[in-house]
Design a protein around this nucleic acid. Structure first.
Lengths: 202, 202
DNA sequence: TTCCGCATGTAATCTGTTACATGATTAC
DNA sequence: GTAATCATGTAACAGATTACATGCGGAA
């Protein structure tokens, strides 16, 4: 998904400044699914204007001047054509799972448990936000947006459940059985031991 | 998470070539959580070697020469220090949810349903892979890796459930109620109508 | 009067991908 | 013999972030 189309999406709700767009991702629900920096936003707004997808409305509000951007007919068309293209499958890039998958049997589990506990708190915070958002009294949430928020809720709840199970398993040494047809755990630990001992000897 | 640490992670399992590392993300479970291209891998391997984290083992196997890389003691240390750093919270960058949240009430829902159906198939494929992986008889899956895989399973199942609910809601016009304190839906549709009609008149 | 939030913008940098070049071996 | 897979690598490019520069208005 391109930054350009994301900007068109935001502008489809209401005319916005570059600063507004950034805030949308910083403090609001859009930030759950996307993000971008000023260094991307302002140059892209310029480009979108040059290409005729958006146009600026100079505003003098409270004596403070700002540049609201609005979609042109061509901009609406581009936006809606993009909506109809099938979305790419998302990549789950999660450092926690990478680290977990690669944790050695003889490394301290308490650190991994700490990582999980931190994730638990973060997930709980997000879940609270997601639950309150659609009934906070002032935010605009369309009916289809409710479906997106429902997804976030379902997913975060599933994640929490998993975190709690995992912490329990690690604390009580009740881990599921893996699969190790070539005695890899042993080989791995042996390679590691050799490397570390070799270091100490020198 | 950096490419460098990801490479160290892969090498912690067993010495590998650049090609092996790429395969790990292409055909195996690691690809669920991460990915990278040759254009990143080979230069990084070079860099990691120069910095003393890995060293090459030239191999003449079946007459075919390849360069296996192994961790140095310094490499093991760097890898394990990295494991202990708290992982960053993952960003959920998902075009489907962005598109869904921004779908207009007077745009054809059948296209959105099509997007969901496509996602459903992709998710089912992944889920099948995730279920078979830990019992396929040849892959190495450590006990902590089993926890990661469990997460993928729980999450994909939650996703499937949500997709099915959403398709049902869209097909039967049974969408949840949103929140619209400022009549934004109306304003939005009006802005859009004006832009599109204005276009047709000119 | 000082700090914070609003507001716009750029230059340097970073990080990674795509596309290409090359060549050996193996399976059909 | 020819297509697929194994294997290594680079150059050009794309995409985005970080850090900086600038300035107004309102609150404490």
């Amino acid at each position: 998904m391109s930054v350009e189309h994301t900007i068109l999406s935001i502008l489809s709700f209401w005319p916005s400044t570059g600063y507004d767009i950034k805030s949308e991702f910083e403090h609001k629900a859009a930030g759950l699914f996307w993000g971008m920096s000023y260094g991307s936003i302002y140059p892209k707004l310029k480009k979108l204007e040059e290409e005729g997808f958006i146009y600026p409305i100079e505003q003098e509000e409270d004596g403070r001047k700002k540049k609201l951007y609005e979609l042109t007919p061509k901009g609406w068309e581009e936006f809606e054509n993009w909506l109809q293209l099938p979305p790419a499958y998302p990549v789950i890039k999660d450092e926690l799972f990478m680290k977990m998958a690669t944790w050695h049997d003889d490394m301290d589990f308490s650190i991994l448990i700490g990582h999980l506990q931190k994730r638990k708190e973060e997930t709980e915070d997000l879940l609270n936000f997601v639950k309150e958002w659609p009934t906070n009294g002032y935010s605009y949430v369309s009916r289809t947006a409710m479906l997106s928020i429902r997804y976030a809720k379902i997913r975060l709840e599933a994640e929490l459940k998993w975190i709690e199970e995992s912490i329990y398993a690690l604390e009580n040494d009740d881990l599921p059985n893996g699969q190790d047809p070539n005695q890899n755990t042993e080989k791995l630990l042996e390679r590691r031991r050799k490397a570390i001992n070799g270091e100490k000897e020198t």
